[in-house]
Design a protein around this nucleic acid. Structure first.
Lengths: 222, 222
DNA sequence: TAGATTACTGACCTGCGGGTCATTAACGCG
DNA sequence: CGCGTTAATGACCCGCAGGTCAGTAATCTA
């Protein structure tokens, strides 16, 4: 130990402000790979560049860390995505929304969150409700409103706006999940994200396009 | 210990033929509730009516039991569902297929399998591929073929049949997942399975219906 | 009914990982 | 520079669950 130690880096640094975020970031990765039960706190700590004990300075236990991670990440991504809504005709609005939602769904965090939430639903009913409300309901409400307006202007055919919104959600979420794991879901392997969302938009607008039989009305009901 | 024991039931019975199935059934439940890492073999054994040691007479370890359970269940349900395909016009075929696929997707096992497979994809690439091939690809191929024929007869508009099949798959899988957890996914809570699949079929057929602009091209607005 | 076979049991072993805490070292301040 | 504060460490504890195996009891055979 020469006195040159005086100028050398300290073994570790105090970073009380940054720790929580670092830990959540690391938790996202490790939980994402191993699930709640399978993940080791030691690994999370290591990946965050701290020791296991440090986790307990900021989170009471493993479960709390998990919860916070989900909340944090969902909110973060959602807010980034909702900026992107603009005005225009319903068709334009829809296209814009779909592109925005797509970038949200295709963000690195979403795939992980989706798997985790679905995997651990049972044990975190509150988290599930949070997810359902903040991700799904929020999206559905927005879309339903656009569809309703489009139907009013005659741009779209008349459908139950909520049903139409669900259809959109189902298509986009599934495709996003598939695209996030192209190695496994080989049926989207040779298609870029761009092509994927374009195909979705095209398909969906076709499904909503105004009924050709506007004049001989009342034939669609069973 | 009175000699009335002679006529009493034995403490346990030898059931070498039935054990594997019993264990797989129990495994489906317990893995379904707790995931791979979270499930306890003791619990699986108990639910199958045997002791923990018995598991190791039929499966080398926890992971193998998990694998076998997935394979078993997927095959079982798939085969039951594929019976239901019949002949008729493409539209009729499609409707029939969708009903069949829906009952498959809504079978008690599927929801569980879906969550498990998605949750543990990383660690069982072979299982994931098996699932992708046997569930997704199989469905897509069938639908694509029907759509292709429908487009040929002019019954449907011209679309890439594979893309159309993916759209169908995405809608149905998502809805099935939602319906299997209505408590959490409240947006389908007040809708029966029947109404759900009917809405899906209606929507999908609309999306595929032949282009109105074959004769009077480009006159969609008023 | 006795003896051989083998399905099954459950106490036990063991390693792993969640959680704790006495100790250490970074940092702010006078 | 030295002192107090507190962020951070990592060795340790301990309960839990995967996996083992010697023993036990059901069933088969003669």
């Amino acid at each position: 130990m020469s006195y040159s130690d005086t100028t050398s880096e300290p073994r570790w640094r105090r970073r009380p402000e940054e720790r929580p975020r670092q830990l959540i970031e690391a938790a996202l990765e490790v939980f994402g790979e191993h699930g709640l039960a399978g993940a080791r706190l030691e690994d999370i700590a290591k990946r965050a560049g701290v020791s296991k004990g440090t986790i307990y300075l900021y989170f009471p236990n493993k479960e709390a860390l998990f919860r916070e991670m989900v909340r944090q990440k969902v909110i973060e991504e959602i807010e980034a995505a909702e900026q992107r809504l603009a005005t225009g005709t319903p068709t334009e609005q829809l296209q814009r929304f779909m592109h925005g939602y797509w970038t949200f769904l295709r963000s690195p965090a979403f795939g992980t969150i989706y798997r985790l939430v679905h995997g651990e639903l049972h044990h975190f009913p509150d988290l599930a409700q949070f997810y359902s409300r903040e991700v799904i309901q929020r999206g559905i409400k927005l879309v339903a409103e656009i569809v309703r307006r489009g139907a009013a202007t005659g741009e779209f055919r008349t459908v139950d706006p909520t049903v139409a919104a669900r259809m959109l959600g189902s298509i986009m979420v599934s495709h996003a999940v598939w695209c996030s794991r192209r190695t496994f879901f080989t049926h989207v392997a040779d298609e870029t994200d761009e092509q994927c969302i374009d195909a979705i938009i095209d398909f969906y607008l076709h499904a909503l396009r105004a009924d050709p039989s506007v004049f001989d009305a009342g034939t669609s009901r069973t």
